[in-house]
Design a protein around this nucleic acid. Structure first.
Lengths: 207, 207
DNA sequence: AAATCGCTGTTAATGAATTGACAACCGTTG
DNA sequence: CAACGGTTGTCAATTCATTAACAGCGATTT
């Protein structure tokens, strides 16, 4: 399934949950398209990847579609996460509520600075890097978040891979190299602002 | 210029700065391609959008290329930013060092909860939403960051637009609607993790 | 000073993604 | 019960992005 499709499926899911919370039961491809600034054709094309059929004249059964998407996107089973880097962003992510309802569990947070090790961050206590491999193994951690300065990102990535994570979310603006079989997604925090700066300069409007 | 090109230009810039810091003077499209997992053809194609010429046999003059890219991407003139939402992520972004060197200046942070207003966040003090419009105008703020819960995002977007920002960085996983002429970029924090979850499930490796 | 080699810039070819178009379907209404 | 209207699913057409191919240039070497 193409990455672009996956990204949109994630948006549909979020949008559908909001609709469901509002008490809606049915939605059409046109309504979804309008809400997300897409064409209805794209929406229907995307849903062709999902094991689910809409019904003519009424559209899609929201709750059943949510279920189908959740299965496909793997949000049903809870995934364990470790964060490496207990700076401002790392700590904020560790405390972030938004992950809970989405099937993610923050297991541990690590840092290399002795000064930071032992600090409390929400429920967690910052641990030293030497404990990383054990924690990943014993807790069955699948995902590592890298939130260290750029220079250290590749080394942390290597350690996460060695410890056995299958996916990495990379926060600093560095490209990291990983072996085949490990997935990487960039978080684009600073990059997104730079993208904005460029769009603004060139008068490229939103929408 | 296509968005995908802009995103890569941002990566080139970041990579070039690292090379320059290492004392390198020249780089070829092949080297850049390898560092970022692209083809050299893509790199050269991308640079055709830049007012800059490489030199045959030696490649690109790193420092001059950095300058050309900085101009094109609008990172030379400092842009002022306000953050709306002083939760964990909002505060972390306000304190984040990574923005300084990149031409961004954090002007103010806002929240609607009386309990939070008045708190210190780094250099800044959390202000109430009623002060938003004035601050944007008097400080010439161009960019607003939305880091509030999903339900409130659209309303905050409307207020930022009304106040006169030209670009918005949207952190929560909601799609927001803005009038023509305002640029929006999504920060994809939770979404990125969901993308990872899906990639992992389907055995889609990294690289 | 001529020949060489590696690199760029660009055009053409391929490959993806998006959009448009339409047949098939099914509730609803007269 | 038949005609209608609106919606899906899919195929085709178009647009966009990436890759490949190659001519031309310039530093370097002989």
């Amino acid at each position: 399934m193409p990455v672009l499709v996956v990204r949109r499926l994630i948006k549909y899911l979020s949008c559908l949950k909001a609709l469901s919370a509002d008490g809606e039961a049915w939605v059409s491809s046109h309504e979804l398209a309008e809400a997300l600034d897409l064409t209805s054709s794209t929406v229907r094309q995307d849903f062709s990847h999902v094991e689910f059929s809409g019904s003519s004249k009424r559209g899609y059964d929201i709750d059943r579609l949510i279920e189908a998407l959740s299965n496909l996107l793997n949000t049903t089973h809870t995934k364990s996460i470790v964060i490496v880097g207990a700076g401002n962003l790392g700590k904020a992510l560790a405390r972030h509520r938004g992950f809970l309802g989405q099937g993610f569990r923050m297991c541990a947070i690590f840092d290399s600075a002795p000064k930071v090790i032992g600090q409390k961050v929400g429920q967690l206590t910052v641990m030293g890097m030497s404990d990383l491999a054990d924690a990943v193994k014993s807790e069955g951690v699948e995902i590592g978040i890298i939130s260290v300065p750029s220079e250290a990102a590749q080394s942390v990535a290597d350690q996460l891979v060695a410890a056995g994570v299958c996916g990495i979310l990379n926060v600093p603006c560095t490209h990291i190299q990983v072996p085949e079989g490990v997935a990487v997604v960039e978080a684009h925090v600073v990059e997104s602002l730079q993208e904005l700066a460029c769009l603004i300069k060139n008068g490229n409007g939103g929408e």
